[in-house]
Design a protein around this nucleic acid. Sequence first.
DNA 1: CTGTTAGCGCGTTCAA
DNA 2: TTGAACGCGCTAACAG
Lengths: 352, 352
Amino acid sequence: MQQEHKHNRAQVTLDDIAERVGMSRTTVSRALGGHSDVSDRTRQRIEKAARELGYRPHTVARRLATGRSFTICAITGKLPFIRDALFIEVLDVFRRQLTSAGYDLIIGSRDPGVSGVGDAISLIRQQQVDGVVLLETDIEDPLLSRIVEMETPLVLFGRSPEHPELPYVDTDGLAAISTVVEYLARLGHKRIGYIGGPPWAVCAVQRLKGYLKACRSYGVSSDGLYIEMDHSGLAEGYSAAYALLNRTQTVPTALICYSDAMAFGAMRAAYELGLRVPDDLSVVGFDNVALDDFTIPKLTSVAQRTRDIGEHLARLILSEVEGEPTNPAQVLLGTELVVRESSKPPQAQGAP
Amino acid sequence: MQQEHKHNRAQVTLDDIAERVGMSRTTVSRALGGHSDVSDRTRQRIEKAARELGYRPHTVARRLATGRSFTICAITGKLPFIRDALFIEVLDVFRRQLTSAGYDLIIGSRDPGVSGVGDAISLIRQQQVDGVVLLETDIEDPLLSRIVEMETPLVLFGRSPEHPELPYVDTDGLAAISTVVEYLARLGHKRIGYIGGPPWAVCAVQRLKGYLKACRSYGVSSDGLYIEMDHSGLAEGYSAAYALLNRTQTVPTALICYSDAMAFGAMRAAYELGLRVPDDLSVVGFDNVALDDFTIPKLTSVAQRTRDIGEHLARLILSEVEGEPTNPAQVLLGTELVVRESSKPPQAQGAP
DNA sequence: CTGTTAGCGCGTTCAA
DNA sequence: TTGAACGCGCTAACAG
């Protein structure tokens, strides 16, 4: 019935346009592909026709023909899916950047599924993705090595000790935790505890290093005051804090946590042990998630520059994919300590 | 050097296998495609060769040839990306189901990007997806209508008043909230407040309905005790609770929230107003997220059956896509009220 | 049961 | 500046 909307489901092809303007499909392809060897008049006519017909290039066909996919694959850490609010934020801006550059984002899984669909290696081999972004860098990562072998454009969130030459974006976790220790030490804390993330993750190692180094620098003890956990969730924060706080002596007066989730768990543990935050115990988290402004007390936390992370990741992977190297290819981003209600000077105590 | 791993990056094609076993590519295709018209001996040889060569079907080529994509597109609500913990959980099990059925999952965006990449309509038209799952059902949704017009397999999370015939999975929010009201009324609460979600979302409307209906049933007033917000986040919960609680009279002794995030915000507001939860105010959330077990106090909440939601969504969309209708095609799931520390009988008060 | 032929929509030679 | 012909890897229709 309607003239305008008859192409509701059907794909408008180059041939349709070619027929409309009475030219060969090849010419249409070149005109729309932005090649220079087409006369202006022809190009105009073709573009007009394309617009009128509502032409959209058929991505799948283009992929098969070119061997490129205009798709970037992001791979999260060992967790089954995206769980972490930080990743969601980063992915959000990352995705926007890709989109405005004409690229698509697909979330790949680390391990091959039953049918071999959707895992990173298959995606690369089948040219379904032009490049890969790894969102968690581990000390040792067989997947990472395989991707490197395949010579696929690759950018990391985090530095890899195995492959130090790769382009990356990273948050300076060492400096960040040092700053937190300094902040707490300046407040007067003498026993500052640390609840660490999984030791296989590079960023967890760096942050622990920062803690230990800063403790030495500021002359506060770290003996028996830190713990490394295998995950960075609520439950781990809770049990780690419970272990650290439920002692007869050497109880920390401040607790730095690898993640905000751990900090929430830690606050709960403190509460159950009869310790008030921040009066009896200061707590500092990491990531500055939205919830930090609504907990009781509001959580002091380290803010990563999520926007910059996403933008740099996009810039780097796109330049890798398009073969136009940008500088710098390795970006280390600073952090900001957002002080809220969960941290304050320690109570005066009856220590000699 | 190595014989085994020389096919590191290159795609092994059907032709490679065909050459190896000395047969035509077509036969190989049929054998691997599980068609019945291949002799057992041939199939065995072909499968063996495929295994040895490390063959993986080239998805893109298959898509172009068949017009099918073996990919399902999930579309979230009006928020820019997946923000909600519930969706993440649902998507996680949904994704597993798809994977084990040989399907891929792609997250589509609602609105066309600058370059027309990744939006749902383009994905469908270009046969990049075989079916669509809409994760939030709105009262009116132009996108939904367009997808229906295109006659694409479609399953909703939530019932659509515009398209009541569509297959869906939904949580019985009306019954859920009724149960909560009943629970609180039985505890002795006379003034039960409700903080609602966006009125354009079907589930928010249903839950509000459940609240109003139950209030009538149990003889408690709802006058001026409820509020509808345009989003369901922390900030909205906070300001809604602030508005409801910061009055000289008619202050509720219990607050039901559309989401856990809103409940967290509400608890913070109560705290700032000097109300203790649960002594002065009971708070109940919705979604039963992991954090509920770690807040202070732990949050009483309504648990949706996330696992079932994901599984049913997968079952329904797959049967739609494969053209084998399953029953029931419309699933309404119950909920469970998980009572924790944030709810208890109201304080005895000096009312006549 | 198996092979031959054709075509999915597009990009890219090579001639004209 | 334009067009004809070929191929990307795979599946489907039709013979044999």
